[in-house]
């Protein structure tokens, strides 16, 4: 029930935004993340963005993963 999926903010209108999830556009609420901007990815849960995805942290995690995979294949 605590499912939340990454969604890309396309357009903001007041407290709401249009986001894209897997090719589908839907209207969501930004009441819990008022600082979100167009182009941000947010975690979407039951029609609300509950957090903004931290791009830098995501990249760092993926970099760490890539290094681990490389070490194994070496």
């Amino acid at each position: 029930m605590c499912l939340a999926v990454p969604a890309l903010i396309k357009k903001i209108e007041g407290k709401d935004a249009d986001v894209e999830i897997g090719g589908i556009t839907r209207r969501i609420s930004l009441r819990l993340t008022p600082e979100a901007k167009t182009g941000d990815y947010v975690l979407l849960h039951t029609g609300f963005a509950i957090n903004i995805i931290d791009k830098q942290e995501a990249e760092e995690t993926l970099k760490l993963f890539a290094e681990m995979a490389e070490q194994v294949t070496e």
Binding site: L8, I21, Y41, F65, A66
Partner: peptide, 20 residues
Amino acid sequence: MKYTTEFRNNEVAQALLSHI
């Protein structure tokens, strides 16, 4: 999908598993 598919990579999964 961004922030989804990257976190399903099989090679990395194997690396994490062998680390574990």
